[in-house]
């Protein structure tokens, strides 16, 4: 039996911004059904990787391949996603949240999630103008699915409140619900615990496991090492745009290169 194909394969990706090499020769695989972590000091290039995967940036060089879980009876096929636009990438099954929350803040909580359903629904101009039966049925399923995801993150009570009225932690959860509503195979979370109190962080731990139970693979950027070490099976460590370590948390923790990147030169020898 061969090992399962990676869900996402990042292969020798480079990203240059003018004179700055934000990513240099970064490669890693994301295996389906796992929680994996992407860590590194500030400015290491973590968000830039997310932006390359989701199509916000086009890698200067390198390949990013997605192998969506095959429908029953078909074989898995890889799709090159580098260079595809964000709306295409999300339709292929990669959703994300943002480091600095980007909600549709003057819309309601429900509307935020309903917009997440956009890429899985299809009614168009004519359907909307004529209020066709198909359009009305679709609207009902959009609401049902959205409410399901709001319940999933525990926000259903606030469904009709404006998104901007939520607490910071709840806004992060809403972003996750919106991303989940796109029915992703892979969910990219960019520092979801940032600004959360210990209680909320503990809830987040549970939430991420629940997401995994839904069959969604998770790639997590996080500075909270306790959380990362606890929930990730595999870690990718970046520093100055380069991958300096790659492996299970236990091995990463004692890697002198990683210690050096975080604590500065000399610390590893001390």
């Amino acid at each position: 039996m061969t090992a399962p194909a990676p869900l996402l394969k990042v292969d020798q990706v480079y990203k240059r911004f003018g004179g700055l090499m934000a990513l240099t020769d970064v490669s890693f695989d994301i295996m389906p059904g796992r929680i994996q972590g992407l860590i590194g000091p500030n400015g290491a290039g973590k968000t830039t990787i997310f932006n390359c995967i989701t199509g916000v940036y086009k890698p200067t060089q390198g390949e990013i391949l997605l192998t969506p879980p095959p429908a029953s009876g078909t074989t898995a096929e890889s799709i090159r996603i580098n260079g595809k636009k964000p709306d295409k990438v999300v339709a292929l099954g990669i959703a994300r949240t943002f480091q600095n929350i980007r909600l549709f803040s003057s819309l309601t909580v429900l509307d935020n999630v309903r917009i997440g359903r956009h890429c899985r629904t299809s009614s168009n101009l004519v359907g909307a103008m004529l209020r066709l039966g198909s359009q009305r049925r679709e609207e009902a399923t959009i609401i049902d699915a959205s409410m399901k995801w709001l319940k999933f993150v525990g926000l259903e009570r606030h469904a009709l409140a404006p998104a901007s009225s939520l607490s910071y932690g709840d806004q992060r959860r809403l972003e996750i619900a919106r991303a989940l509503a796109t029915e992703p195979a892979l969910l990219l979370l960019d520092e979801p615990a940032a600004g959360m109190n210990p209680r909320e962080t503990a809830d987040l731990d549970q939430l991420i496991h629940a997401i995994l139970d839904e069959g969604v693979t998770v790639l997590l950027i996080e500075h909270d090492m306790k959380l990362v070490m606890k929930i990730c099976e595999q870690l990718i460590v970046l520093d100055h745009g380069e991958r300096i370590a790659y492996g299970p948390p236990a091995a990463i923790k004692d890697d002198p290169k990683v210690v050096e990147a975080y604590l500065g030169r000399g610390a590893a020898h001390a």
């Binding site: 709306d87 943002f98 909600l103 549709f104 819309l107 917009i115 899985r120 359907g127 679709e138």
Partner: peptide
């Protein structure tokens, strides 16, 4: 409608809208 919500999403935040498809 789905169309109108997409418009509002664009108004609120284009990147987030694109990330919703």
């Amino acid at each position: 409608s789905r169309l109108g919500r997409a418009w509002l999403a664009i108004r609120e935040d284009q990147l987030a809208a694109a990330s919703c498809g």
